[in-house]
Amino acid sequence: MLKIVVGGQINKKEIFDYIQNYYGTENVKLEIKNDLDAVMAMQSGQFDYYIGACNTGGGGALAMAIALLGVTKCKTISMPGKILPDEEIKKAVDDGIVAFGFTASHVEQVLPVLLDAIDHKN
């Protein structure tokens, strides 16, 4: 079973609902946590992926993840005015990135690509 924790600073419930609708309730363990608890749960192996949003895509979405998981495990996939190409998002998942941050207004653009890439890897 895939395990995803939703952190970040804003729109956690919207992201949670989107992921739950994508996978259904049977196929994923999904929780919302504050940033510190989410990343600590990642460190302890309770979750496979961290997904978070903020207004910049990297600051509030990934700051704690970068601090505790390390920058090599984290990727900003969108920021104001820029969304990474689908191929770069897929490559990040394939390369072992486990924490993803994005601009909250890009939920509809980045989550389908990210979740599809996670599906293909797992």
Rank of each mutant, 00 (worst) to 15 (best):
I15P: 00
I15K: 01
I15N: 03
D17V: 00
D17H: 05
D17Q: 13
D17F: 00
D17E: 14
Y18E: 01
Y18N: 06
I19R: 08
Q20K: 14
N21F: 03
N21M: 01
N21K: 12
Y22C: 01
Y22M: 04
Y22W: 13
Y23A: 09
Y23R: 02
G24V: 02
G24N: 02
E26V: 05
E26F: 01
E26T: 06
N27F: 01
V28E: 00
K29E: 14
K29H: 05
L30N: 06
L30Y: 07
E31V: 08
I32E: 11
I32T: 07
I32S: 03
K33Y: 09
K33C: 08
K33S: 10
N34I: 09
N34S: 13
L36S: 08
L36Y: 14
D37T: 10
A38E: 08
A38S: 14
A38W: 09
V39E: 07
M40W: 13
A41S: 15
M42K: 13
Q43V: 15
S44L: 15
S44V: 12
G45Q: 12
G45D: 12
F47S: 02
F47M: 00
F47D: 04
D48Q: 12
D48L: 05
Y49M: 06
Y49K: 06
Y49N: 03
Y49S: 01
Y49P: 04
I51T: 07
I51D: 04
N55S: 14
N55P: 00
N55C: 03
T56N: 11
T56E: 04
G57V: 02
G57M: 01
G57W: 03
G57N: 04
G57H: 03
G58A: 12
G58Y: 06
G59R: 02
G59S: 09
G60M: 04
G60R: 05
G60P: 01
L62H: 05
A63I: 07
A63P: 00
M64E: 14
A65G: 07
A65P: 03
I66P: 05
A67M: 10
L68V: 03
L68S: 06
L69T: 11
L69F: 10
G70L: 11
V71E: 15
K73Q: 15
K73M: 10
K73T: 08
C74A: 15
C74P: 04
K75Q: 14
K75L: 13
K75V: 06
T76D: 07
T76E: 14
I77L: 08
I77F: 11
I77G: 11
S78D: 02
S78N: 03
M79P: 00
M79I: 10
